[in-house]
């Protein structure tokens, strides 16, 4: 249960950063926090108490002893896509800074025309 609370807090803190902060890098940090929260939520849903990881490393293990493997595969994909998205977003932030010489989105909006 405590993991649900942690995941919700991460998602809400991330959305708060995206909504309130004006610095572009802070906004990207907020997006990556939302990402992390969703990963934690999915893994926590797939967890089953007193079961082990889905690897048949030992012949005595049976299929009934394992946690749900589908969210884990999903999150594995999501983390790798997440780093690609973060890197691309930061590249765009760097280009915006080169162009406008500021990271404050309000000033960038003023400089638009």
């Amino acid at each position: 249960m405590i993991y649900y609370i942690g995941a919700f807090s991460l998602i809400l803190i991330g959305i708060y950063a995206v909504l309130v902060k004006r610095n572009l890098i802070k906004i990207v940090i907020g997006l990556s926090l939302v990402d992390a929260g969703v990963h934690l939520l999915l893994i926590a849903i797939g967890y089953i108490k007193d079961k082990t990881a889905p690897i048949f490393s030992n012949p005595s293990l049976s299929a009934g002893d394992m946690v749900d493997p589908v969210p884990q595969a999903l999150v594995l994909t999501a983390i790798v896509i997440g780093v690609a998205v973060t890197a691309l977003a930061l590249t765009i932030v760097i280009r915006l800074y080169d162009h406008h010489k500021t990271l404050n989105i309000n000033k960038i909006r003023e400089l638009k025309w």
Partner: peptide
């Protein structure tokens, strides 16, 4: 034997 790998 690693089910996550076999899914991915």
């Amino acid at each position: 034997v690693n089910i996550v790998t076999s899914i991915v």
